[in-house]
Design a protein around this nucleic acid. Structure first.
Lengths: 145, 145
DNA sequence: GCGGATAATGTTATTATATAACGTTTAAGG
DNA sequence: CCTTAAACGTTATATAATAACATTATCCGC
């Protein structure tokens, strides 16, 4: 029983496929417990937090999923596996995120670290603010008040 | 009773002073529960998690303490209040951190966000790796094995 | 196919991190 | 004083993540 039924990616187990599929279907990051609470996930037989966390760990190993530290949540990576650092724009209003690539800035950041004698393994950037939609809505509300 | 006995900073309440003092005395980030478990803190009468979290919130408002998202831990900011983004180098071996300033890189990062129509409030950068000491120790061990 | 190693899973319990709700006390200013 | 807003105390609870151990599936060489 190695057929992933939920995802299209080969070499994923059923649990991993289900979790990845759940993240793909969401429009914003989900916590492990958000995922656990999804009807589709329950119907698929996943019912323990650990089951979700294990699947997420493997998906992150493969670069298919990223963890948003400041939200304790996880998002599908829609850019395919990549080895350069990623940053996330996190809307504090609607909770959606936008992934940005930091190919050039990564060198700058890591260079700063190396000046201090630090050997960098991973770079994480998270920016909080308002997404275009929410910024526009707030501007409109401010105008009418 | 507004005298901060633990810290030297004015305008801090006693609880805030105790918590800040605890962080100043540590050589690495502490979680709220780490702080709660310190004898000095217990002796000062702080005994509930919420007490610690409330003090931490205020200290962060004032820029005296930073939160390390990927550790769920808090560090004293030894640069004084500053408004430009900070980054942290986090040693995955010894757990110590090093704060770095990102005054120039911040513009680059935030600019990337603005290209997408995103209004940035805060930028957080966390880099994981090995600090100079731990990198040197590992190199020495590799040489003798 | 068989057998053994390795990875993945199931299950239960527990630990770690953070906040809600509510009443009381304290500090600052008129 | 007296009011008001901030800080605090207390208890309970919510949220996030992992430990420990038994079981099952998958891969690979034979």
């Amino acid at each position: 029983m190695a057929e992933p039924t939920a995802g299209t990616d080969r070499s994923l187990t059923r649990n991993q496929g289900e979790v990845l599929s759940a993240l793909k279907g969401a429009d914003k990051p989900l916590t492990a417990y958000d995922i656990l609470g999804l009807p589709k996930i329950r119907k698929a037989g996943l019912k323990a937090p650990l089951t979700i966390y294990r699947a997420l760990d493997k998906l992150m190993d493969q670069g298919l999923v990223h963890r948003i530290e400041s939200l304790n949540a996880f998002v599908h990576c829609d850019h395919g596996p990549h080895d350069h650092a990623t940053g996330f724009l996190i809307c504090s209003d609607c909770g959606r995120t936008l992934e940005v690539h930091l190919d050039d800035c990564e060198d700058h950041l890591a260079g700063r670290a190396r000046e201090q004698g630090f050997a960098v393994d991973a770079v994480k950037v998270e920016m909080t603010g308002r997404c275009p939609d929410c910024a526009a809505r707030q501007a409109a509300q401010a105008a009418t008040s």
